[in-house]
Amino acid sequence: MSEKEMQVKEKAQITTEGEQLKEGPVFLPSVDIFESPEAITIVADLPGVSPDKLNIDLRDNELTIEGEVDYNIGEDEKYLLQEYEIGKYYRKFALSNVIDQSKISATMTDGVLRLVLPKVEAVKPRKIEVKAA
């Protein structure tokens, strides 16, 4: 089979700055960040985070993504095997000063966040046409 097989990746645990008021581990979500001439897009894996438990904050060019996980095992359940831990997600990014903050859009499907950060008009690359005189 030529198809790529998925590998188990342990969730990266972090200690966030500041005091966590809620106990439990904090994980760094895996992300893809890509840039097109029009926008910067961030795609983050946040399994178990419902859209209303997600906090996206942008200030002083610092973007913070924070997600609470609202699933756990039932009260009468007992673990037989635990291969991964459940905890909240937290990640911070420094953005350059080119984002049009009024046009940011975020969608969440199947535990994946897609954040589109459009660039301001002034920084969009322009092709300069050279006219033959």
Partner: peptide, 29 residues
Amino acid sequence: GLGRTAGVFPAVNISEDANNIYVRAELPG
């Protein structure tokens, strides 16, 4: 506190109560 993983994707958590066995896996996207 985590057991050894099987090294196979996806990682699962298995639990039980009196009536059921529960298998959960994080499969975003």
